[in-house]
Design a protein around this nucleic acid. Structure first.
Lengths: 200, 200
DNA sequence: CACACTAATGACACCGGGTGTCAGATGGAA
DNA sequence: TTCCATCTGACACCCGGTGTCATTAGTGTG
């Protein structure tokens, strides 16, 4: 959605940034709740007009998802760079761990944001569209490495399952304050492998 | 959402039914697309006022999902009735196969509805809320049989994974006209088991 | 038949998210 | 200074969704 190619030397300079709007918005969401905050409230807090806000973000729902899309590109690069001698599921798992890894000290903030994203019905719904892109990245990776098409069930299901593991871990992480996200991702993957394990 | 306990003998009789509205709506959705159909269009086609329509359905998004919620109850019953001597994942898989089984001859219609549900962005988003309930049913079943809490990662991840298999199968089913949904569900599950197989 | 009672309906006003349009603001380049 | 590309805000408008209230259409009762 951003359209910066070089430095914008022509025309009227931007009066704000995505990050600036996002920061004000998240404050308000925390203060009054997501539904309880109107777009006009956010625009006013950010010192811009309602119309301008919609030039920065396609929708109110898009604001808290913020830089998720940027993270997607990174996930894709990480998967492409994965060594081919480790099992596919393991490469995937490690990439996901990295993708969800947080810099030290930012855990509390990440928890706040994820709680908003994963516990607000309107945002839960919107997230489905984000997840579809995320799954697509995984499915394409699987397809590439397995020599099948990206819309083959076998690739698609791995994309869904990888997402399943991540979301389950986040669910539990948000439900229990004293847990570590990385551990939960490991637990979820292990549980799934055992659950489906070839012991039948 | 329905509130019929006995026969409604008192008061003004209902002028329509959920099914009646739904049928008109689906016709319009197919004709003009989901976004291209307004609530007023639907109300007019159904011969009721806009306000009445919203007394039958909580939102426009809820209309095409129709009887999904009823199906949920059936899934839950089916899981409760599953014999305890078959492996958990297998009981689950069979219940899902049943859940998604169609009466003979209705495949074409089911395809149309599912294409609408799974390929319309607004409905994809809305579906996230439905899926959450679906996963909850599975997670509770797993928790019950495994003696753990329903919000334990190990139960939650199975709910997510079961949904993952179903959605992957539907994806592929919609993408390829000549496929059988039951076969695809089998394929997806098999692929996932192999993918995560205990061969590492 | 007239009456009370119950529940569904429709008209209306209103709110919030989102879009199309257009005139005016801003600052570098010619 | 003038030209020009771009961003900006004001305004009108559409659509989904809700609160309110009078009205309608039935039932059972005197």
């Amino acid at each position: 959605m951003r359209h910066r190619s070089g430095a914008e030397v022509f025309g009227r300079p931007r009066s704000t940034t995505h990050g600036g709007i996002e920061a004000r918005a998240l404050d308000l969401f925390e203060e009054r709740g997501f539904e309880g905050t109107t777009v006009d409230d956010i625009a006013q807090a950010a010192g811009i007009s309602r119309r301008t806000l919609f030039r920065y973000f396609a929708s109110k729902n898009d604001i808290p998802w913020g830089s998720f899309r940027d993270g997607l590109d990174e996930l894709e690069r990480r998967l492409e760079a994965a060594p081919t001698d480790v099992p596919l599921w393991q490469a995937l798992h490690e990439a996901i761990l990295d993708f969800n890894g947080l810099p030290e000290g930012s855990e509390a903030q990440h928890r706040r944001r994820m709680r908003l994203l994963l516990r607000t019905p309107a945002l839960q719904a919107h997230s489905a569209l984000m997840y579809a892109e995320w799954r697509g990245v995984v499915a394409r990776f699987v397809a590439r490495r397995s020599g099948i098409e990206a819309d083959d069930v076998r690739a698609v299901v791995v994309g869904h399952a990888a997402l399943a593991v991540s979301l389950a871990a986040y669910d539990a992480w948000l439900a229990h304050d004293d847990t570590d996200l990385g551990d939960l991702l490991d637990d979820a993957l292990t549980a799934l492998r055992r659950h489906l394990g070839a012991d039948a």
